[in-house]
């Protein structure tokens, strides 16, 4: 039975809306609930995929778990340690074990450092090491991520997207990461290179027993790489379960729409039928929380077809994640 490496309970991260000078006298303080009560756990050697539209709080979850942002409330257990409010000096030794692969390839690597120095910095930041040791470790890392040795003296801008991504992965491994938050690691890459990166991440997982929180909006890749998938909508997880169940037997209307949009895009037949349900509703997307009740109600086809039941918009009864068997959880009053 694999050990639980990460456990997140009712995590919230609310950002304060910056006020202007004048409105600060009159208005109430506004907060933006980027992450609004999220709970999940991650086992060793496991990948949890996190999907949702942009702005739904995927990246914020990743950053908050690693304490790059301080959570507003909730609890984060990493490897048995409660890191929710752990002071920085105690957290430091743990940092090496939990790392992030950032979305923006170019922003993540210092443009003025050679690849060798980037890796060297990462190796020596947590441990003291002699030059020979560093060199040995660099060679080892390059082998792990399948990068040519000749690239070491290059600057980041001289590398292709795939190579930059590999350097990012090597850097994360160099500090001995066991849990990695991969934030859209393939979104800026071509399909051919994307496949290389996906293969690399899976190989590393098998060889080194890593755990990933894989954030992406590419549903196919998520389905391929993840054991479990959590679907987010406006700061909340609306459905969570084994990836094949989420993809093929979704119960939440939002998940259903997400995955069917993938199928629609591909099938040529679909282009022939011009009328499609709920196409009008789709244009509006407000990042702030709607009135109350279910967050998805204003865009929900089920809400529409059931004749707008009161329970969906009743502010006292926001649907909670409930188990519907086999570890499949859904937050909906009328699951499909």
């Amino acid at each position: 039975m694999p050990k639980t490496i990460l456990e997140v309970t009712d995590l919230k991260k609310h950002f304060k809306h910056r006020k202007g000078l004048f409105s600060s006298f009159s208005e109430q303080e506004r907060t933006i609930p980027a992450v609004d009560g999220v709970s999940f756990y991650l086992k060793e050697n496991e990948t949890v995929g996190l999907v949702g539209e942009s702005g739904c709080g995927k990246t914020t979850i990743g950053r908050t778990i690693l304490r790059l942002e301080n959570p507003t409330s909730g609890r984060i257990l990493f490897d048995g340690n409660d890191i929710t409010a752990m002071p920085a000096d105690q957290l430091r030794p743990l940092r090496g074990q939990m790392q992030m692969i950032f979305q923006d390839l170019d922003a993540a690597l210092n443009p003025k450092m050679r690849i060798r120095d980037i890796l060297k910095e990462a190796i020596t930041v947590h441990h003291q090491a002699s030059d020979e040791e560093v060199d040995r470790r660099i060679v080892e890392l390059l082998e792990q991520v399948n990068l040519k040795k000749s690239k070491l003296s290059n600057f980041p801008h001289e590398l292709s997207g795939g190579e930059k991504r590999r350097v990012g992965v090597a850097r994360v491994l160099s500090v001995g990461a066991r849990f990695i938050v991969a934030d859209e690691p393939t979104s800026a890459l071509d399909v051919s290179i994307q496949a290389q990166v996906v293969n690399l991440l899976r190989d590393l997982q098998q060889r080194l027993g890593l755990s990933y929180l894989f954030i992406s909006h590419d549903l196919r890749v998520v389905e391929l790489i993840s054991h479990k998938v959590a679907v987010m909508y406006l700061g909340k997880i609306v459905e969570m379960g084994l990836s094949e169940r989420i993809a093929h037997a979704p119960r939440h209307p939002y998940t259903h729409i997400l995955w069917s949009s993938l199928v629609e895009k591909q099938s040529k037949e679909a282009s022939r039928c011009t009328t499609r349900p709920h196409s009008g509703v789709w244009g509006v997307f407000d990042f702030e929380r709607p009135q109350g009740g279910c967050r998805f109600a204003p865009r929900c086809p089920v809400y529409e077809s059931k004749g707008k039941p009161v329970v969906c918009v009743d502010s006292a009864s926001e649907p909670r994640l409930r188990d519907i068997g086999n570890g499949h959880q859904v937050a909906c009053h009328f699951p499909l």
Partner: peptide, 24 residues
């Protein structure tokens, strides 16, 4: 190029994608 796209088959069998080695 067509083979490097994840398909049903890849996902079912959890098999490796066929990447094009090397760079553009």
């Amino acid at each position: 190029l067509l083979e490097s796209i994840p398909t049903e088959r890849h996902i079912k069998a959890k098999e490796h994608l066929r990447a094009i080695e090397g760079d553009v």
